[in-house]
Every structure is written in C-alpha cells, then in structure tokens.
Design a binder for these strands. Structure first.
Lengths: 234, 234
DNA sequence: ACCTGAACACCGTTCAAGT
DNA sequence: ACCTGAACACCGTTCAAGT
C-alpha cells in the first residue's frame, strides 16, 4: 500500500530536446537534510513510473491520481509533462517497443521476420498489462515506426508486393497483439449440457491455460508457413 | 440526445426459465390513455437495449446510467435483471454470437471451418463497438460454446489431434477477435524522418484503412493454408 | 418482487491561484 | 515554469426505503 520508492536512475534520457540547459539552484544542496530528496518530476520519470504501476498492478491500476500519489505529487502536476492520459499511454507503449530486437541477421528474410515478431511477443509477455491498451486507439511513435519499417523491408525483400506486404504485416501484427490483448476466455461449462459438447470435452485438457506454452509459436509458424506457401483462391 | 424509443418487440424470448407464468394485472389496461406504455423491464430488453446503445454510440457510451436513461428507469432498476455490468456485457456478447452461422455443409472440414470463422468476422463487423469487450475477461455462454464445439469438431474431423485442434482453434480465434479488437493504429509519421522509413513509404498506399477490403480474408486464408500444409520445425 | 433517491468511493480534467 | 487545491461532470455500486 505504501508507495514503493525504487527510484531507478537508469535509462534516464540525458539530452532530449526537452532537457534544457538550466541547472536548478538546489543542485548543490546537502541531501542528508531530512529525507532522500525525491528526483525532479520529468517526462521520462512519469512514463517509467506509469509503466511500473501497470507491470505491478495491471492497467486498471493506472489512474492519474494513483500515479501522482506514487510520485508524491499532486495529480495536476502530471499535466505539466504529459498532455493527457492518452499521450501517457502512447509514450508507455513506445518505451516498451524500444525493447524489441531489430538486428537479427540469421537466416532468410522470413526467418528474420519471425525473430522480430517473436521478440515483440516476448516484450509484451514481459509487460502483461500493457497490451490491453491496443484496444483503444494507439498512436505509433518512433520505436513503433522502426518495427514497421523493418517488417515491411523484410517482406519486400522476401518478394512480396507492397500490397501483399501490408496485408502480411497486418496479419502478423493482428495475431501477435491479439494474442496478448485477449484476456482469458473462460467457458461457462454449465451453460450447455456436456452431451452437446463432445468435441470440446475431447479437447478440454488443452484448453486450460489460454497462454499455454508453445501456443503463440504454433499460430505464428502457421502464419509464416502460409505466407511461404502462398494461398490459392479458396 | 432525447432517448430514441424504438422498442423493437422482436426476438423477445417467450419461455425461458426466468419468464414466470404470472400475468400482470395491468395487461388489460387501455393503452390509449396518455402515452405509449413502455414495455416492462426484462432481462432480454435490458440486454438488447444495451447492444443498441453500443451499436449506435460505441462501447464507451454504455454506462449503467445512460442505459437506465434510455430505458426510462432509474439506474438501480437494472440491477434487478443483471448482476453487474460485467454480466451485462457477457450477455450482450452471447446474444451477438447467436448470429454466427454454424450450419454450412459445403466443402471439406477446413472449408466449413472457414465459413464459420468468416461468419464470426461478419457478425463482429456488424457490431463494431462490441469486440472491444474481449479486452477484458469474457465468460463464454451457450452460443459461444456452440461455436467452440463446432470449431473443435471440424478440426478433429480434419485429422488434427486434440492438442493441435486446440492450438489451431486458438490461432484462428486470436486472429479473428484481434482483428476487430485492435483499434486504429495510426502511425505518427512525424516521429521519424522519412529517409529512415523507405520501405514504409513504399507500402504507405496500402496502409490507409486498417480494415481495408479483403484484409481479414488474406490473414484468414494464410492461416488456413498454413494449417493445411502443416509446418516443419522452422 | 421490483423500483427509487441518496450516498459512497472513485474517475479525468478545467480553472484560478500560488511560487 | 512548475506545482497546488478546489471544483466539475462523470463513473459503478451499496444501502435503506418505498410499493
């Protein structure tokens, strides 16, 4: 309940266009005064703290008020660093997308594509609560653009036409994000008498965890096989 | 703004276990009295009205208060017919899933599977706002179970093992629901200089509408081709 | 059995005011 | 430039009371 105060000083961006050249006067102040002086409120710190909240307590726990409390600041202080909650979410997404591995060079184009998509999957797995934001509109920032650029590049390299590349990329994107977006589908088995669902009963043992091991990879490889094969008119 | 009062009397379930055998005393009352007598508040009416609200104004417009206003009733009256908002949403989903076509018999198992998934897709297209609820936990009711049963049945018929059937079904499900769940991804083209995104520029003309014509079918047929082909270890 | 009004514990955000 | 407190217009839901 009491706000955790980790204060990870890592990953702080030192020289963006927003970081001004002013040195606040309190820099030389003795910090042993009373309590550890909380670091100044900055845009990256707001975003990183928001991400930590979501990682620890899920997306619904991210409210401007809770975030402000965690940062020991008034709710309105946040609005000096972020236009609104929507922008905050976009920034969180782009921060996380920066973790996606883009520089794999092993294998052919499709193999490299697989590596990137799988990395994307792992990143979303590492931040379970975050994927739900894709349900609302998301504005794709620089890191998202880099992913798209590489995806399209690899598909064009593989011989896809621009039109097919767009379709193929979107299929992979939909599947990957959808995998994490879909909460748990829990069937209400009492809704139908068992004798009406024989096939489901046969499959039931493999229904348990929606995010069962290897399940994402099965669909991913199915898609890639389909892309390699190409499909005749059905 | 003034609440629309369509009052479609169709599709009213006449004999569920909840419909009791009591005939209210006011049944014989002359309706030409003052205004059209609003029909009694029932569970199906609550659910259908909620669905209409979502269809017309999107999921965010569905609040218990707005729904109550539309039904010309106090917010708390709804709770006599529905446990909470979560149950209301589950009921809406199942109502809509009843529209999915399950009785196609043309072609082989995989073709029939395609027909069902495509029908699922069309149903979600007809209720654009609704898909977003899959972002939260959804409890699968009778109509959802029937879809699962048929899907598993067709996959088992096609020779899939129970384990593969579960994986394959889930891949199709993820892709289909994900397609509708993902809002609009709108790239912030100003986030990166154009010379860093040459492939994206080449593909741009096909990026416009996320739900471009034929896009869903492309991914669906890619998946089905992959399923027919089977995939070697990549 | 069904409905109501008032109240509780929340939201995101605007506004006016402080330094 | 950055932060604050109070207020506004909302939420879903509980509770006590009405018929």
């Amino acid at each position: 309940m009491g706000g955790a105060r980790k204060g990870s000083p890592v990953t702080n961006e030192p020289s963006t266009s927003r970081a001004r050249a002013i040195r606040p006067t309190w820099v030389g102040v003795d910090p042993s005064q009373d309590e550890a002086p909380r670091p100044p409120l900055t845009r990256p710190r707001v975003v990183r703290t928001a991400l930590r909240l979501v990682d620890e307590h899920g997306l619904p726990a991210l409210t401007m008020r809770a975030l402000a409390t965690d940062l020991q600041v008034s709710p309105m202080a946040l609005y000096n660093h972020v236009r609104d909650k929507e922008e905050l979410v976009d920034l969180m997404v782009d921060l996380v997308l920066g973790e996606v591995e883009l520089s794999t060079t092993a294998g052919d184009s499709v193999s490299q594509l697989r590596a990137m998509v799988h990395s994307y999957h792992q990143v979303l797995t590492a931040h379970p609560g975050l994927a739900r934001v894709y349900g609302s509109q998301v504005r794709i920032g620089p890191n998202g653009l880099r992913i798209m650029e590489r995806g399209f590049g690899l598909l064009l390299d593989a011989g896809f036409s621009p039109r097919e590349a767009a379709d193929a990329f979107f299929a992979l994107y939909t599947y990957t994000v959808g995998f994490h977006l879909i909460g748990s589908v829990d069937p209400d088995y009492s809704a139908l008498p068992p004798e009406q669902t024989p096939s489901m009963l046969a499959v039931t043992p493999y229904l348990s965890g929606v995010h069962q091991r290897g399940r994402f990879e099965y669909g991913l490889d199915t898609l890639l096989t389909g892309l390699r094969t190409g499909h005749p008119a059905p």
